[in-house]
Design a protein around this nucleic acid. Sequence first.
DNA 1: TCATTTTTTGACCATTTGGATAGAAATGCG
DNA 2: CGCATTTCTATCCAAATGGTCAAAAAATGA
Lengths: 213, 213
Amino acid sequence: MTTTPAEPKKETRIQRQKREVILTAALDVFAVHGLRGATLDKIAAAAGMSKPHVVYYFGSKDAIYTTLLESLLERWLSPLKDLSPDGDPMTEILTYIRRKLHMSRDMARESKLFATEILHGAPRTAETLSGDLKVLVDEKAAVIAAWSEEGKLAPIDPHHLIFSIWAMTQHYADFDIQVRAILKPAREGDIFDEAEAFLTALFSRSLHPEAVE
Amino acid sequence: MTTTPAEPKKETRIQRQKREVILTAALDVFAVHGLRGATLDKIAAAAGMSKPHVVYYFGSKDAIYTTLLESLLERWLSPLKDLSPDGDPMTEILTYIRRKLHMSRDMARESKLFATEILHGAPRTAETLSGDLKVLVDEKAAVIAAWSEEGKLAPIDPHHLIFSIWAMTQHYADFDIQVRAILKPAREGDIFDEAEAFLTALFSRSLHPEAVE
DNA sequence: TCATTTTTTGACCATTTGGATAGAAATGCG
DNA sequence: CGCATTTCTATCCAAATGGTCAAAAAATGA
């Protein structure tokens, strides 16, 4: 048979490497052009191989995209998973913000891929969003809510707090072109360092448990 | 000649209406599918007319997209333009946040269109970003910086403050699917009302000029 | 009314693109 | 070495898609 391996039980080292090369190349292409704008030709060129070879390893363009998205979701959620109810509230949240921001800096392409997916209706992520993600967020929101109740944190809507952290950190990856265009000639330093200082100041001010009228 | 009118000096009322119908339909399609994912057939179907008719009025798919983007940019910036140096700092900023949030609520498709454009490298908006937009932002950032200097506002990086307002307000339009998936069964009220309360609280706490160590 | 212009579309075309086929090159292995 | 399996690619194909064309229908105006 001439069919593709698709997803065999045992993957050789070479197969894993090749798949990795394709995924990396595809990530570049998808992040810039989106799912529809990306072509197998572009991906193949970026990966330095022929188009049928790409299809040989993944079966279809869609399969590459889906694979990318799935492996991304895991890593994407890990910083939030690490937010511990046992730590110091302020430290936990500021650490979370910092880790999320570092992910935006180091995984800008992945962030854009994810953003485009959600933006276009999350056709293949909807279940994860209202499933695993919702469970995780609800759990951590409860932790934050408890902190607020105990007076360790200013009273705040924990869900919207999480949304705001996502929005602000991912903004620096997803809209980097805009951010850079505006900050351009001035500002020699790293934009992410500025962002970290800004976000730390913003949230520590808002979250300190005091002046609760 | 059988060429299209494209952009004649004088546009009849009927022409303007037709163009408007097409633009509205195209906005729906572009917001969901992106530039590449949108097809002339889909746009024509959404507008209730034939594909050649759409081309007759705009010449090309790209022209529709560009027209949409240009008319959007003006409206997009108007809330920031209205931020006045003469008003009360806190009121001005909170009003800006509210107006921006209302735009996210009422112009979600436009927000998504813009987001996709920037996300994919802003190929046809780059000049505007580093031109008009930068000028406007720099101007308003100076206003905010002055307020901070005068002690009317907590010291804060004004550029990043603006970025954070964009990020958080647009998040509710661009990522509405994610937000809704997480907030779903609970929360009967309007998400945007919650967001408004949250953002108002967050920023008024951070911006009040006090506790400056 | 009837010629002229504008609006509208069915049919068609060229290109792009996802993917299939078949076979070549390489690799593994007895 | 010789056979089998895996890896890889040139070539082709069918569907989708942006856009053209010629002509019909509707509106305009003298």
